[in-house]
């Protein structure tokens, strides 16, 4: 997928005779091709810390939602306003979904913050990448790069989300059934088979992080590439169905991310002996 980015870098120096380092970014725009980059580009530096465009957008989303929450807090009433109504509807939707997995409203309310925040953050990270201007407004600093980039199209963001989610799920499991009992799921010396199963469980936690992060990253990044290329080939009206598709994919990916986190929470908080019970347990 970065082939389009790599080839000009290699070809240009031979044609123009300039060094690759200075020409890399210019080439992409002079050639008129879509700007595709696998990683988020740094926009400015704080000390040695390079602030990337996706971090900027993620922080913007954080500030937006925090300020809405803080300013709307005083307006929360028994008789809901418009914003509160929308938010309540959304929470009821999430709670119903959680009820179907956890089977208990109190448990749902207990784990609501994690699941709902994942849903909101991921969904709006996906959608903000589709806003006009994001990815198309260029910033000509030390490197020419889009000023904003969808956070979900940056592996740092998805990996951070995945790691935090998996760690939180394990912590919740440890709180729910006791740290010692929970550790017994991974380190079990009762017999060799159980020990091996424990090792596999441990590996699967790592695999979960990888699949969580690369699923989201792959879907959203592929969507961005798709939109960029379709927009490059036929700039008017043709990208519209693809835009709809990406809006849908963004919501679905957020739902899948939070649903999987929810299912893992449900598995982690049930006291069990084998993975078979756990898969049936949350469905009740």
């Amino acid at each position: 997928m970065s082939a389009g980015q790599e080839t000009p870098i290699k070809e240009m120096p031979t044609e123009t005779g300039l060094s690759a380092e200075t020409q890399t970014t210019q080439v992409e725009h002079e050639g008129g091709g879509p700007h595709i980059s696998l990683k988020a580009e740094p926009i400015f530096h704080i000390g040695s810390f390079a602030v990337t465009n996706s971090l900027i957008l993620a922080t913007l989303i954080l500030v937006l939602f925090s300020s809405i929450a803080i300013f709307a807090r005083k307006k929360i009433k028994i008789i809901p306003g418009k914003l509160q109504n929308v938010f309540e509807f959304f929470l009821e939707f999430i709670l119903d979904m959680m009820d179907s997995v956890l089977g208990d409203r109190r448990k749902s309310e207990k784990y609501l913050p994690l699941i709902a925040t994942i849903f909101i953050f991921v969904m709006f990270s996906n959608w903000f990448g589709l806003l006009p201007g994001v990815g198309s407004i260029m910033f000509y600093g030390e490197e020419t790069a889009p000023l904003l980039r969808a956070p979900s199209a940056d592996l740092n963001f998805t990996l951070a989300l995945a790691v935090v989610t998996v760690l939180t799920v394990n912590l919740l499991g440890a709180f729910a059934i006791g740290a010692f009992r929970y550790a017994g799921k991974f380190l079990n010396f009762s017999n060799p088979i159980n020990f091996f199963v424990g090792i596999i469980e441990l590996v699967s936690e790592g695999a979960r992080m990888i699949s969580f992060s690369f699923r989201l990253f792959g879907n959203i990044f592929a969507g961005e590439v798709l939109l960029a290329i379709v927009g490059f080939l036929a700039p008017y009206l043709v990208p519209l169905p693809f835009l709809f598709l990406e809006v849908f994919v963004g919501a679905i990916q957020a739902l899948i991310f939070s649903m999987l986190a929810l299912v893992f929470v449900a598995i982690a908080i049930t006291d069990h002996h084998g993975p078979e019970d756990a898969k049936h347990e949350p469905a009740h």
Binding site: S100, V101, A207, I210, S211, F214, R215, G218, I256, M259, L260, V263, K279, P282, A283
Partner: peptide, 24 residues
């Protein structure tokens, strides 16, 4: 429907994980 949906999303995600490993 809700139970089937949960199982479906879970198994679809596990199946998709294979594609993700291939991607990695």
């Amino acid at each position: 429907a809700s139970k089937v949906q949960t199982a479906m999303i879970l198994s679809a995600a596990f199946a998709e994980a294979i594609a993700i490993y291939a991607l990695v």
